[in-house]
Amino acid sequence: MAQAAGVSTSTASLAFSGKGPVAAETVARVLAAAAELGYTGPDPLASSLRHGRSGVVGVIVEGRLLHAFRDPFAVSVLDGLSQVLDEIPAGMLLIAQHAGAPEKAIPQLSATALDAVVFSLCGPDDNPAVEHLAARGIPMLGDGSPAHPQVVQLALDNRGASTAVSRHVHELGHRRVAHLMMPLRPDNPTGLVDRSALDGATFADSRDRALGFLDVHDLGEEAHGRLAVTSLPDVEQGAIAARLLLDRPSAERPTAVVAQSDLLAMGVVRAAGELGLRVPEDLSVTGFDGVELPWFAGTLTTVDQHGEHKGRRLGELLRRLLDGERPEDEVAPVTLRLGTTTMPPPA
């Protein structure tokens, strides 16, 4: 192309890319020569190999991508991360990892050139992909999991945050309080459980939020009627589990439900309405995440994880990993955000 346009290779490159001070007449001549020769630009793969990078960051999402895109908190984290990836620049490749068979993602990972991998959105503590990626020397970043020394963590104090929102409910005067959990393991069905369900939990986020709740509300023998777990952390499963907690005589019914996510909390609000209960007059409800809920008329009392900011911080740590650094693990900040869904229990 440079020869056809009668310019040097460097001038042709600057003219074609638009990145250098080249006369307009020369740019026009280079572009005309490129069009005549059918040249569409440099090979991005060859360019990445020269620079030692693929320009792709893998983001492993536990479960189906459908569920991640339905979760506004997950979307806000990915949005924040993508903003920094655009600045690096790098592309994002979403990789779904089957909850019950995480090893199935390894063949896809092995066939993909990746500069780094981010484990996001509450995955299991033990992930077989870690050893595969470590053997390839690929930098890894997690949001508290997988628990592995080669994974840099932007973790969350799940137990402490859950304790804070549970203490708020206790200080309002609630003593009959129930807890609605995200999945504790890949195969658990939605239903009532007792404290022993926490034994052997593979999802540390869910387990630790439950422990934070139990640090404040010691349920004793009443635990089975006050603890529920869901198969998916969405509104539908939250409503199903909430009915199991709430559909009982008023003297036995909880006056508050502490849910492990905002979507689960919305499921509780839905179930309460179907049972003729008012929130918060008859039932206080809290969530966890701090997402926007434009379809909800009130304001949910919740633990705000600041999803977009968390995603950007993941991106900043990732930038340092790509630069060859090994940043220290961090704990992401959270805020207890009081809303209109909690008040003292009815007399």
Rank of each mutant, 00 (worst) to 15 (best):
Q3Y: 10
P21T: 07
A24I: 11
L31C: 07
A32C: 08
A33R: 01
A35M: 05
D43C: 05
L45V: 15
L49V: 11
H51C: 11
V56M: 14
V59I: 11
E62L: 10
G63T: 06
P72M: 07
L81W: 02
P89G: 15
A90M: 05
I95S: 01
H98I: 13
A111G: 09
T112M: 09
S120G: 13
L121Q: 01
P146I: 07
P146L: 11
P149L: 12
Q150A: 14
Q153W: 08
A155K: 07
N158H: 13
S162H: 04
H168V: 09
H170W: 14
L172E: 02
H174Y: 05
R175S: 14
L180T: 00
L198E: 06
L211P: 01
V216Q: 02
H217M: 14
E222G: 10
A223L: 07
H224I: 08
R226C: 10
L227R: 01
D234I: 09
V235D: 02
E236G: 10
R243D: 06
L246D: 00
S261R: 01
L263C: 07
V269A: 04
G276H: 10
L277A: 09
F288R: 01
V291W: 00
T299Y: 11
Q305T: 07
L318G: 00
P344G: 07
P345L: 08
